[in-house]
Amino acid sequence: MKTLAVKVDDLTVAYNYKPVLWDIDLEIPEGVLMAIVGPNGAGKSTLIKSILGILKPIAGSVSIYEKPYEKQRKLVAYVPQKGSVDWDFPTTALDVVMMGTYGSLGWIKRPGQKEKKAALEALEKVGMLPFKNRQISQLSGGQQQRIFLARALVQNASIYFMDEPFQGVDASTEIAIINILKALRKAGKTVIVVHHDLQTVPEYFDWVTFLNVKKIATGPVKDIFNDDNLTKTYGINYKVSIQE
């Protein structure tokens, strides 16, 4: 059995007594590139946020490499939805990427040359180095998403959680992002992505979790990405042609 990167036990999350996630058990092996799919309101973002301690579950527990998240923060990087922040905030692309280094710095300590160098390298990886001094509102949607990705890369984590990184980006950015995600998996990292476009699941990912308040299925794409699970998740009789 492979090492488990993430283990979720009996996780239940509710907003105002209405369960958004119900009794989720989930084991994510190390080194997979996994999509979380499900309809709107299925609790995909909520699942990520609960694993990362941003939301408090009403029951259940989460472990990252067999320890609670609070002890493993440095192993985890998080890319929130692009729409969750105010892009008119007075700051530059480089500065946003530098924020990725804050976790390893801890309270009070300030970023220095070492952190700046790491941020510049991350910008280079996502092809955004020429834009480093751009004010973030001056960037296109795809460029903003690349900045967010660079900010996660700079954390040099073992596990990456990404909330809809392909939302509102152009085709070239989508390809650039998926190539980086694949490179991360190749380097032995675990990458977990909330994903919307079912058509690209077999092409982009090797592992998939179907979610709709409850966990429907989780496993390798080639074994479980089928009409049966899609129908169970999306409720209607769902057919997709799976590319071989």
Partner: peptide
């Protein structure tokens, strides 16, 4: 001066601040 970094981060991106332990 002491908490400038933390103030900036949590003002810009509350979610990341929380996940990083601030």
């Amino acid at each position: 001066i002491t908490f400038f970094k933390e103030l900036k981060l949590s003002t810009f991106d509350k979610g990341l601040a929380a996940s990083l332990g601030f």
